[in-house]
């Protein structure tokens, strides 16, 4: 009788412990790779990312850019088709982007932009290269080189945009302002952000990350 009572006590303690441990396990067995990844964490250095982009921008981005005349022609024929064929977007419900390259003649120099005509005498073939303060995510998202899922949080992803914009302001905008006299020819590679098709396609406003006199 006493023995039976002891076994009942043992079984009850074991059952109670089982319930407790089910909800509050003392440890977890995880694969080593997973544990290592957790302990290493992630460090994002936006300056290093932009250094690499800057060194490789001709091959990584310029070579993939759509020709500006082809794009403007496609946009004028059918915006939706042009978007499907040439644009990229990030996430849901936002802007879309064109990575675009071309050569044009300067038609006017404004406070925050330089207007280029891609074909002489065709005003619908004009684009504007941004030369003011550069804001937004046009180059980060337009080039398609970076994925938000590779960044631990959105602040790091936004820091990349800030660094890209800063680099463009420091190294591209001054050179463009210097070259941009009315009538001069300018070759460019850059990205355009389209949030509102009614206002952002005419003229296409491009944040250039490469400019040169051909």
């Amino acid at each position: 009788m006493r023995r039976r009572r002891e076994w009942i006590i043992v079984a009850s303690v074991a059952a109670a412990t089982a319930v407790l441990l089910y909800f509050l396990p003392l440890f977890h067995v995880v694969p080593l790779d997973q544990a290592r990844q957790r302990s290493e964490g992630t460090a994002i250095d936006p300056v290093a990312l932009v250094d690499r982009f800057w060194a490789e921008r001709w091959t990584s981005s310029a070579a993939r850019a759509v020709d500006a005349v082809d794009l403007m022609t496609a946009v004028q024929q059918d915006r939706k088709s042009a978007r499907r064929t040439h644009s990229r977007s990030v996430g849901v419900g936002g802007a879309y982007y064109y990575l675009v390259a071309g050569t044009g003649r300067v038609t006017s120099v404004e406070k925050d932009s330089v207007r280029l005509s891609l074909r002489d005498g065709q005003p619908q073939m004009e684009v504007a290269l941004e030369t003011g303060n550069i804001f937004g995510n046009a180059v980060r998202d337009g080039t398609g080189l970076w994925n938000v899922n590779d960044f631990p949080n959105s602040q790091d992803f936004n820091a990349l945009s800030s660094e890209l914009n800063h680099r463009i302001e420091q190294q591209v905008v001054p050179a463009l302002r210097k070259e941009a006299t009315v009538g001069a020819k300018v070759r460019f590679v850059g990205c355009a952000e389209i949030m509102d098709e009614e206002t952002d396609l005419h003229p296409l406003r491009i944040v250039p990350f490469i400019v040169e006199a051909p």
Partner: peptide
């Protein structure tokens, strides 16, 4: 009893 407890701890730990 301790052996059963140890077994339960192990099972709970592996049940991540």
């Amino acid at each position: 009893l301790p052996l059963v407890l140890l077994l339960l701890i192990g099972i709970a730990g592996c049940g991540g």
